[in-house]
């Protein structure tokens, strides 16, 4: 009896290999082909409406991104953390068994189709809606740094300090890329914060600007407005066309400054501050801790009138923040 049971124990070796092989085969059978992704995105194109958004899950199954060029697609960290407030409906492409079922229950599934191994869920978005985004309307804001106007718009943001005339800066930005490459090679400057050669600034200050951007914050790319608050200085943003509703601020220090990548890198210890107020209203002061995090703050009550933000920091050498200020209202 004992011998038989010991023999069975040794059977576990081939059995484990068999199970593992079965699992790998099953896993491979669930991998969507490129054609599956293409068919699913074509189906979206055929039924796309103006206020629709497109995203996918899980994030690592990103082959569908190859077909997103003309779609209103956005990045979603996970279904549990989904923020669909900017859309009326969202098309969710799913693979490896993930789909809209994991979304917060405020959203409702309208229809589900499958394209090979890709599931396509059309989701009716519930809950609040975004009625205004500072990021999207950044051109229509006014920015000042220490009470001096930052009035040079370079196509993605407001610049506070120029070393060249605006015409020269624009000419540099619009130069053919071959010329820019030559210029870049002539002026190679290492940027220790981002641990790379700094891109050509064309006479713009690398810190003193407020720009539309995408940055890694808390290990995920966030579409946001980039700003570099400085100690004892105030960077002010006026958003005159802010719609009525409750403001919502998502913000965090960029990972480039919050994650200490070597012992030589400065450790952030101080808070960064932002005050947000409707014009004439009570300002709300928010502290952003020196940590790797993407957090949300809300105004609490709906209001109206221009929104004003003022950014500063206690960090002696300044810091880098990525934020997204939106105004929300009931749907």
């Amino acid at each position: 009896m004992k011998i038989i049971s010991r023999r069975l124990l040794y059977l576990l070796v081939p059995l484990s290999v068999l199970i593992a092989f079965g699992f790998q085969t099953h896993m491979r059978a669930s991998v969507p082909s490129r054609a599956d992704w293409f068919a699913a995105t074509e189906a979206i194109r055929a039924a796309l409406q103006p206020e629709d958004g497109v995203t996918w899950t899980p994030y690592y199954a990103g082959e569908g991104r190859l077909f997103f060029e003309d779609l209103p697609a956005f990045h979603m960290e996970s279904p549990e953390k989904a923020d669909f407030s900017a859309y009326k409906r969202v098309w969710l492409l799913g693979a490896f068994g993930e789909n809209a079922d994991a979304l917060p229950k405020i959203h409702s599934l309208v229809e589900r189709k499958t394209f090979g191994r890709v599931t396509l869920d059309l989701v009716q978005v519930g809950g609040e809606q975004t009625v205004g985004s500072l990021r999207q309307g950044l051109e229509k804001t006014s920015v000042s740094y220490n009470q001096k106007s930052c009035d040079f718009w370079d196509g993605s943001g407001w610049n506070c300090k120029l070393r060249r005339s605006p015409d020269q800066v624009l000419a540099c930005l619009e130069a053919p890329i071959e010329e820019q490459l030559r210029e870049f090679e002539r002026n190679r400057q290492y940027d220790p914060v981002h641990q790379r050669l700094a891109p050509l600034d064309c006479g713009r200050d690398r810190k003193l600007h407020v720009s539309r951007d995408t940055r890694i914050v808390d290990d995920f790319p966030r579409r946001c407005v980039w700003i570099a608050p400085q100690k004892n200085k105030v960077m002010r943003i006026d958003w005159p066309e802010a719609p009525a509703g409750e403001w919502v601020l998502d913000a965090g220090l960029t990972d480039a400054v919050s994650v200490r990548r070597s012992s030589k890198q400065r450790r952030l210890t101080e808070k960064t501050w932002v005050t947000i107020a409707r014009e004439g209203g009570e300002p709300q002061k928010i502290a952003i801790e020196p940590e790797q995090a993407w957090k949300r703050w809300r105004g609490g009550t709906p209001g109206q009138g221009p929104l004003i933000m003022e950014w500063t920091t206690d960090e002696p050498e300044g810091t880098e923040v990525c934020f997204d200020l939106t105004v929300r209202a009931p749907r």
Binding site: M27, L66, E69, D213
Partner: peptide, 21 residues
Amino acid sequence: LDIWRSYGTDWPVAGYFLDGV
């Protein structure tokens, strides 16, 4: 993300994927 910023798009036109990743 530097590529996204420079090219003005987040979406690749091609890629190499192994078992879907």
